[in-house]
Design a protein around this nucleic acid. Structure first.
Lengths: 397, 397
DNA sequence: TTAGTTTGTTGTCTGTGGCGACAATCTAAC
DNA sequence: GTTAGATTGTCGCCACAGACAACAAACTAA
């Protein structure tokens, strides 16, 4: 039951069925994205007729995907419009394996994180064990959620490269996984469709839907953890590449420097902008982001300052490259990269300016991410949801 | 009458009109791309019913956009299908200003280059003069083409950055143009809608439609002339960026080298892989591509070899960056970059391998461009044609 | 309470694509 | 040359999604 993540595949010809499916899909997408939206808003946004929207919403309600409620707030003139809400009974599970923990959550179609479980792991735990544990936690959550549920599937955020077609983890350097058929393994245990994606791509999607890149159609997202991952949205569409391995923004070479990154490449951003170098320079052991940030801002030593500034310069040059390539509207920095930006905003922007073409960088906004650590759990659930939204009438059979 | 180049803007809701327009558009696009295509092929590709296709083709024929002819070749079993051809009476003009010449052509909807005019110019000629000359040549071609014409518009290939919305040339370093409202200027003289685009983007589009990247949906195109320009297609869509200045692949920094490129950026591909360095090293004056290639391959001096190999290494590293970022299916090298690839294919591929992630580069094909110097004239005509194809029923009023 | 506004509902209409039957026109085999 | 088989074009009819108009419902503002 391995399935591709839903891409907006539009066959060339368009027939009646396709229209109906598209419109159902459009309405459900609006409901899902807004959490709660009035019929009249749907009418406005889609451009369809009132009666058509009425019909579409009724069909979605019959499918058990949305529910209609009378508005509670009294605002505006005229008859109040009915509010359409994503059903709380339609849920997806999300799974997020990381270096030293595993997180599993249940998320409702309305976008609410219903339940969450976290388990600590030894670094280097095998995929086998992680999959088993994920399956166990999913069963546990399923039990806790009650009976009347429609379960859409499982979304997994992987810190590494994923083959989207069949959910194989090609390489997750920090986890030490190579060619792990994660989706297949987990599907056999939970008997649900499992979708995988790269964590940074999901982070990008989440920031675009709910965070710092909301309402932008051309976004660059950079996440700094143990390595540096990236996500790109152009013209409102997530960049994936021919086989799903695009957006390796951390592995872009910007220098002749001979040090190498986690994947053995030289002179890349990831090899020059390293969280562990900061941790080491600050003589810390802890790996908590906020602790690191506080220590960084409190520290006054020249050597630390030089290191940070060097990282800022490299990151700024990398951003300039992305700007020349993508001409984005907004660049969102997440993880420890946020600290670098906060540390000396002007310096980073200067490096960006120096390396980019005037026209390309015009109007570019650089800002820090808004969403916290639950980001990825909500975003991963988006994978099965988007498959559902793609084909609302048929997906749940 | 300035217009945006057509982007596949689909409003969220889909009504009957939109369906009809989309299907008309899809059929016309197929006819245009294939030049000549049978009804049954259209039926297969679109997935629509025979009778629907019949209806759609009839409507397009009534609009004067296509014509139907009986097949001349006798192939296959069953009743032979009617061939649908783009009308020869529907034409677009294309304009290509370069450093030392101006080319203007008339291209039919069937994709045939009907007529062409070339005029030599002094480098540094003002935009005013170029526009006037372009208008004169367009009028001349119009006169030569006869009476029964439907003229779709004018497409212009600019060697520089273009604001797509209103056709302003922001910066064309080799021409010495800054902030030139080229589209507006030309429209006032010829009274036709004028569309501008970057030359490398158009080259990319042309190679994808008719050349080395045919049938690929994830393409990177690099053109080496006096500078280096790029074009990118991802998931079948041309990358444009938020305001149209994306794909400046030549201005991507890959080194700490302090030399700067035409736009003053340091360590970029364009600053390290320079055609004029090759010309100088070979002690040539001529700037013809084939002469340069012959001289390069004939030369045996160690210093030239070192220079070429250095350029190959830099270009390979840049390609590796693009591969990590875009995960393409094919990389197409055009202009003098073709020579570098031809000179030592293995060396360039080695550099690519060394700088890219294994998964990202899997299956990537590197090849030279196929289309010659008329490439851009045909591609530029694509701009007004794609506006027509976007709205076949209404575009010509 | 009334006028004005906006929205939901219902029944009807329109237009586009699907479908089946039949004719047209080919190839292949005898 | 003839016939069987296959594919395609055409025509008439049907189904169905969305548009539209009229009316009812439910609000605000005066």
């Amino acid at each position: 039951m391995v399935r591709k993540p839903a891409t907006d595949q539009q066959s060339i010809g368009r027939n009646r069925e396709a229209v109906r499916q598209h419109n159902l899909s459009a309405v459900l997408r609006l409901v899902h994205q807004h959490g709660e939206i009035s019929r009249s808003q749907i009418t406005q946004i889609t451009g369809l007729n009132r009666s058509t929207i009425s019909d579409l919403v009724e069909e979605l309600a019959n499918l058990g995907l949305v529910s209609e409620n009378e508005s509670t707030t009294r605002e505006g003139i005229g008859r109040p419009s009915l509010l359409v809400t994503g059903s709380e009974n339609v849920v997806a599970f999300s799974v997020h394996p990381e270096l030293d923990f595993l997180a599993v959550a249940a998320v409702s179609l309305a976008g609410k994180l219903l339940l969450e479980e976290r388990v600590a792991f030894q670094p280097g735990t095998s995929a086998q064990v992680v999959v088993r544990e994920a399956a166990r936690l999913i069963q546990k959550l399923k039990g806790a959620l009650g009976k009347d549920l429609k379960i859409v599937g499982v979304g997994v955020a992987i810190p590494g490269q994923v083959r989207l077609e069949d959910g194989v983890v090609r390489l997750a350097p920090h986890l030490g996984w190579v060619e792990v058929p994660f989706a297949k393994m987990l599907e056999q245990l939970v008997n649900l469709p499992v979708f995988l994606d790269n964590d940074a791509s999901l982070g990008c999607m989440a920031e675009r839907l709910y965070g710092a890149a909301r309402n932008f159609d051309d976004v660059i997202y950079l996440f700094g953890g143990s390595g540096i991952g990236g996500g790109v949205v152009t013209a409102g569409v997530q960049l994936r590449g021919s086989t799903g391995y695009a957006c390796e923004l951390g592995h872009v070479r910007v220098s002749d420097f001979a040090g190498s990154d986690y994947s053995g490449l030289q002179g890349t951003v990831e090899s020059l902008v390293r969280r562990e170098d900061l941790v080491k320079a600050l003589k810390l052991k802890t790996v908590d982001d906020s602790t690191l940030e506080n220590a960084l801002l409190a520290n006054r030593s020249a050597s630390v300052k030089a290191l940070v500034e060097q990282q800022i310069d490299v990151l700024g040059a990398a951003l300039a490259n992305y700007v020349n390539i993508f001409n984005p509207q907004v660049i969102v920095l997440a993880g420890f990269l946020s600290m670098l930006f906060y540390y000396d905003q002007e310096r980073m922007l200067l490096a960006l300016r120096q390396g980019s073409l005037a026209a390309s960088r015009e109007g570019v906004i650089v800002r820090n991410a808004e969403l916290g650590k639950n980001l990825l759990l909500v975003a991963a659930a988006e994978l099965p949801f988007s498959a559902l939204i793609q084909a609302p009438a048929t997906y749940l059979l």
